[in-house]
Design a protein around this nucleic acid. Sequence first.
DNA 1: AAGTCGAGCAACCGCGTTTAC
DNA 2: GGTAAACGCGGTTGCTCGACT
Length: 287
Amino acid sequence: MPRHSSCLKQKLRKGLWSPEEDEKLYSHIITYGVGCWSSVPKLAGLLRCGKSCRLRWINYLRPDLKRGKFSQQEEELIISLHQMLGNRWSQIASQLPGRTDNEIKNLWNSCLKKKLRQRGIDPITHLPLGEVKSQETASTTQHSNAAAAAAGYEHFPSMRPVLDPFLLPIETPTTCFNSEDHNVSMYSHLANSGLCDYGRTVLDVSDKFGYGESSSNSSNWNCSDMIKNIEAFNWVSESKVEPPALISPPWHEKQNAESSEDYSTLLQTCLNASVGAFASEFVVGLF
DNA sequence: AAGTCGAGCAACCGCGTTTAC
DNA sequence: GGTAAACGCGGTTGCTCGACT
């Protein structure tokens, strides 16, 4: 079945938007709100598909868009978030008010990747360029069965270095915490253990205008209060709270986890147990 | 001045997920 | 529960514009 069949029913415009089209879409949404995107073009008098209207609104017309050059701080935040989240642009965008996932994705592909390489960092793994290859070789020879289970981890590619039980045996938990990535690794644990509340949206703007969540209008675990969390991690780091040893999760059950949510639940169970004591210190640190 | 190249950006496409019936 | 439609996301494409030759 052809998707977005509404686009095929009639000759719809494609390509760049004219100022007239922008004006029509903008005034329609400001007046009536989004409602159903598929009906927007008809109601606004546009020969576009709803999908195209949605994209134009989110990436260009939204009144809360910041536009302009990214600051150094924004760039660094994007790099940090990419290290944790991978190419989850909408989730990354949810941490940068006024920025869209498309904008961030473009920045990453055109600029930040290059900058990281110049710093000698692999933009995919965020490891020093020299280490990437040797680590890959080591892990594949050492853990031949890891590949079979790898598909299950691809839901969380950015977490693999932290959570992969084959790469990080339980008897060496310090690997997780004594590196320079201490905060980042711990953040990932907490994020996926449900210890932080990522269910809330970041932008305090009405859903009516279709940008209540991320720039892509959807985010399953918006990392709200990101900055606060990072500050808290700094606090944790400075206060020398003893990080917990990871308790081995029931990895065999992971094979039965049908969705990333199942997997998250599974992680939550084991990580709650692992991080419990640490978390109470962490929460205190937030206030 | 004309041609080429690359960076930056806007928009499209395809697919997975969610929702409505 | 099955199906179709709508939505959302990430990857990719293609256009524009400025720098360079």
